[in-house]
Write a protein that binds this DNA or RNA. Structure first.
Lengths: 185, 185
DNA sequence: CGCAATCTTGCACAGCGGGCAAGATCGGCA
DNA sequence: TGCCGATCTTGCCCGCTGTGCAAGATTGCG
């Protein structure tokens, strides 16, 4: 069902991919679709949501002895490890779609916000901080996702991009170390 | 019109504030509303969008001699300077609404994304980097907004919060300096 | 087999977004 | 002042969407 939604939306554009078409392609009724998803956008974002939430999950599984940012980097790269070689073309297509179509962008950002929230929780556990009290875990989670988003976007929009794993690693290193003005010496 | 949308949505909830009601309260037709906004969410977020874009605008106006993060901090705090005393209650209400109502959250995040994009542009100008080529300006813009969002959220959800300007300043200082593990010594 | 819980479907309806064309309003210009 | 073009507003209309409701199908367990 998710696959049908993504495929049709990519093929003919989001506007021209009627829910009716999607449900027909998936062999379910219009009504069933609504039982599972709040709308077209949610269906298209569903796969990405799973991947994103996995990051927090993986981080939780890392040994406590591992340095925080090493563990974070490992977790942030984990979605790409699942892909045998270059990232799942269906996933990249959905990202491209969600970041380019205004009607989907909101849902895309929402999924990242959900994942970010969960990541902050795990970071808090690891660092002995509390999400409700300290800024730290939320700042870490927010900057991590910011780095991932920026790296992903660069990877998607550059002609001959470096491997996405390297871009993410690079971005994470920068935000972890701070971002002093490069033009000031 | 924007005011009417926010007021009604806050009073009776987003669901129960029909566009028809909003347009009636604003003295315009249903159709005119659609000419200006793509939907209820966009109307409610409009004010926040203006404030958010102002940050990039203000940063552009800062002297080039000012250290980057000082200028950024000044710009990030500028929306609050407009408010005579404590932040505009209408604005805070709209933020509360947008962050709590799932149907508005996407639009809220979109506005921040737009502002972030513009901020990245200005940061690039200032630091001699290029948005298309370097990760740096986008990482800065993204982390700045992350800091602002986290600080704002804490301010909104804490019982007796510190002044929001202080929270933002604090968050910005942390992300600018990097985020090493506080539990590791 | 039988029953209960869950999932799926069809129906119906209000709300929404937007194309279109007619009318109103406003600005400049002679 | 009076005219005209540009912009803004409105009403009409239609297809798409989301959801409450109730009936029917399916599944799993005893």
């Amino acid at each position: 069902m998710i696959r049908a939604a993504v495929r049709l939306a990519v093929e003919r554009g989001v506007e021209n991919a009627l829910i009716e078409d999607i449900t027909a392609a998936a062999g379910v009724s219009h009504r069933t679709f609504s039982n599972y998803f709040g709308g077209k956008a949610e269906a298209i974002a569903a796969r990405h949501l799973d991947r994103a939430r996995g990051v927090a999950e993986v981080l939780r599984g890392r040994p406590a002895s591992e340095p925080l940012w090493d563990a974070i980097t490992y977790a942030a790269l984990s979605p790409y490890r699942a892909d045998r070689k270059s990232p799942d073309p269906e996933w990249t297509a959905s990202i491209r779609l969600m970041t380019s179509e205004p009607s989907l962008l909101g849902e895309f950002l929402k999924t990242n916000a959900i994942a970010e929230r969960e990541l902050a929780e795990v970071v808090a556990e690891r660092t002995g901080t509390r999400v409700g009290r300290d800024l730290y875990p939320r700042l870490v989670a927010a900057t991590v996702w910011a780095a991932v988003e920026v790296a992903t976007d660069k990877w998607l929009t550059t002609a001959k991009p470096a491997p996405i794993t390297q871009l993410v690693r690079n971005a994470l290193r920068q935000v972890a170390a701070g971002l002093p003005d490069p033009s000031a010496e």
